[in-house]
Computed example of a mutant assay.
Amino acid sequence: MFRLIYKSTSNIATAGHPFNEDILSILEHSRTLNPVYGVTGALMASNSQFAQVLEGEREALRVLYGRIACDPRHRFCTLLQFEPVNARTFGDWSMAFVDEERQRRIPLSARPPGSDLTQPSVSASGILSLLQFLAREGEP
């Protein structure tokens, strides 16, 4: 079992509303195909940033990240973590989604260190901690 965490800059113009057709397409595609490949995870999206945690077998994640990195809906895709783990964190979700509104519920000052996607100090552990909390407080 492996975990892959990346961040990227969005090319999707959402005008303050993250549920546009591109985001819905990403979620629908992920929620349909991820179970086929044994992948689970969570996606966090805002007007300008994406962060995603993916869990599954090494080769499935390698192939999936190769497709993700070439997707024109974002740029500056930065791999923050790709390593073995003992258990899934998002095993109940083919793809949990955290939108900008849910992110705003936690002020930047109260977020885990390294979870601010706009800062160079962003870290895999910060993104994972924030996504764990926010995904679990919402609907799968």
Rank of each mutant, 00 (worst) to 15 (best):
residue 3 R to Y: 02
residue 4 L to S: 05
residue 4 L to T: 08
residue 4 L to R: 02
residue 7 K to E: 08
residue 8 S to P: 09
residue 10 S to Y: 01
residue 11 N to H: 11
residue 12 I to H: 02
residue 12 I to D: 04
residue 12 I to T: 05
residue 15 A to D: 13
residue 18 P to I: 09
residue 20 N to K: 10
residue 20 N to V: 15
residue 22 D to W: 08
residue 24 L to I: 07
residue 24 L to W: 02
residue 24 L to M: 14
residue 27 L to W: 04
residue 28 E to Y: 06
residue 29 H to M: 09
residue 30 S to F: 01
residue 30 S to I: 01
residue 31 R to L: 03
residue 32 T to W: 05
residue 32 T to V: 10
residue 32 T to D: 02
residue 34 N to M: 02
residue 36 V to L: 08
residue 36 V to P: 04
residue 37 Y to E: 00
residue 38 G to K: 06
residue 39 V to N: 00
residue 40 T to W: 06
residue 41 G to W: 01
residue 41 G to M: 07
residue 45 A to P: 12
residue 45 A to L: 13
residue 47 N to M: 08
residue 47 N to P: 15
residue 48 S to K: 14
residue 48 S to W: 14
residue 51 A to W: 07
residue 51 A to C: 15
residue 53 V to W: 11
residue 56 G to M: 09
residue 57 E to K: 11
residue 59 E to N: 09
residue 59 E to A: 09
residue 59 E to I: 11
residue 59 E to P: 14
residue 60 A to T: 09
residue 61 L to T: 02
residue 61 L to I: 02
residue 62 R to T: 13
residue 63 V to C: 02
residue 64 L to G: 00
residue 66 G to Y: 02
residue 67 R to C: 02
residue 68 I to T: 04
residue 68 I to F: 06
residue 69 A to I: 03
residue 70 C to Y: 01
residue 73 R to P: 00
residue 73 R to Q: 08
residue 74 H to K: 13
residue 76 F to Y: 13
residue 76 F to R: 15
residue 76 F to A: 14
residue 77 C to T: 15
residue 77 C to Y: 06
residue 78 T to E: 15
residue 79 L to G: 13
residue 80 L to S: 13
residue 80 L to W: 08
residue 80 L to F: 11
residue 80 L to T: 14
residue 81 Q to S: 15
residue 81 Q to N: 14
residue 81 Q to D: 15
residue 83 E to S: 15
residue 84 P to H: 07
residue 84 P to V: 10
residue 85 V to C: 08
residue 85 V to F: 04
residue 85 V to P: 09
residue 89 T to Y: 05
residue 90 F to N: 00
residue 91 G to R: 00
residue 92 D to A: 06
residue 92 D to Q: 06
residue 93 W to I: 00
residue 94 S to L: 01
residue 97 F to Y: 12
residue 97 F to E: 03
residue 99 D to V: 01
residue 101 E to M: 05
residue 105 R to Q: 13
residue 107 P to T: 09
residue 109 S to F: 02
residue 109 S to C: 07
residue 110 A to P: 00
residue 111 R to Y: 00
residue 111 R to T: 03
residue 114 G to M: 05
residue 115 S to N: 03
residue 115 S to K: 03
residue 116 D to Q: 07
residue 117 L to D: 05
residue 118 T to R: 07
residue 119 Q to A: 12
residue 119 Q to L: 14
residue 124 A to M: 11
residue 125 S to F: 12
residue 127 I to R: 11
residue 128 L to A: 11
residue 128 L to N: 11
residue 128 L to P: 05
residue 129 S to E: 14
residue 129 S to A: 15
residue 131 L to G: 04
residue 133 F to E: 10
residue 134 L to D: 06
residue 135 A to V: 05
residue 136 R to G: 06
residue 138 G to Y: 00
residue 138 G to Q: 10
